[in-house]
Design a protein around this nucleic acid. Structure first.
Lengths: 145, 145
DNA sequence: CCTGGATATTTGTATATACAAATGAATGGA
DNA sequence: TCCATTCATTTGTATATACAAATATCCAGG
């Protein structure tokens, strides 16, 4: 590979981060099997699990997604009978249904499988460190934007 | 934040990687200004720059994208007169047009700005290391899938 | 020279995600 | 009490991306 090109492909964080996200998403989709539900929905379910009656805004913040995205996610989860919306003035409060609680439990099991999956490939400690690093880097970026 | 939840949000590489990719993409789109062209297209242009007459398959490999995605990217770049397709049996060979060469040069300038942008927030060495780490981790994942 | 696989690309279709504009509800000041 | 502003959510629309199925070309064995 041309050297200049190689330098860019290795050193551009935008490129490496997007590529890595695509790869780990692929692995995740292989590991998770929740029918229609893409992995992101499960994180939303988890957050609602720990914060019943959470507002949509808070949800967006915790997941780092745009409000419009959250509307669409909740639409789908509501249609699948996994969460309920309750309007409260300007805000919308989200809670889990019983069905949602069940899905949450399955999710926790799959999550362990996922951890094992990538730990086998990348190493346990390495994965943990990388994840923490990305978490903190995201926090920094979000503070600046 | 609930402790169990926090652990998952920090330690799940799928979640942290997707979130980080979203954040860095946002920063990148702010820095780059190529009209319609999203950042990914520019990486494609760069690769074609260094490998005139590259096959589409090779392009996919270097960018870690699916063949169908590459078709769509090239469609767009061709319409914008930045690359040319040349059928060669089963394969399609891609090269830059003169216009494409010009865009490549602008891209290199923007790329430096981008590096500065995130280095200011995350630190220069940190960014470089993280990028390299992600690069290598992607390689490992791709070998397994 | 034909046929059946193998390989490369394209097309159909779906999805997560975003931004900008629209809507709807709350609140503070006249 | 009403209005203007502000804030939360939704809707319209666009995009990068993927998978699966379809198409097109090449090649090997008869």
């Amino acid at each position: 590979m041309n050297n200049e090109e190689e330098q860019v492909l290795i050193h551009c964080l935008y490129f490496t981060a997007s590529r890595f996200a695509r790869n780990i998403t692929k692995l995740t989709e292989k590991t998770f099997d929740f029918g229609d539900l893409a992995p992101s929905y499960l994180y939303m379910i988890m957050i609602v699990k720990f914060h019943p009656k959470i507002t949509q805004k808070e949800l967006c913040h915790k997941l780092s997604i745009a409000p419009s995205t959250s509307t669409r996610f909740i639409d789908k989860l509501e249609k699948l009978n996994l969460v309920t919306r309750k309007m409260d003035g300007k805000q919308t409060l989200i809670s889990l249904t019983e069905e949602g609680e069940k899905v949450y439990l399955q999710f926790r099991v799959s999550l362990k499988e996922l951890f094992n999956s990538y730990s086998e490939i990348l190493g346990h400690e390495f994965s943990k460190d990388l994840s923490k690093t990305l978490h903190e880097a995201s926090n920094k970026l979000e503070r600046e934007l």
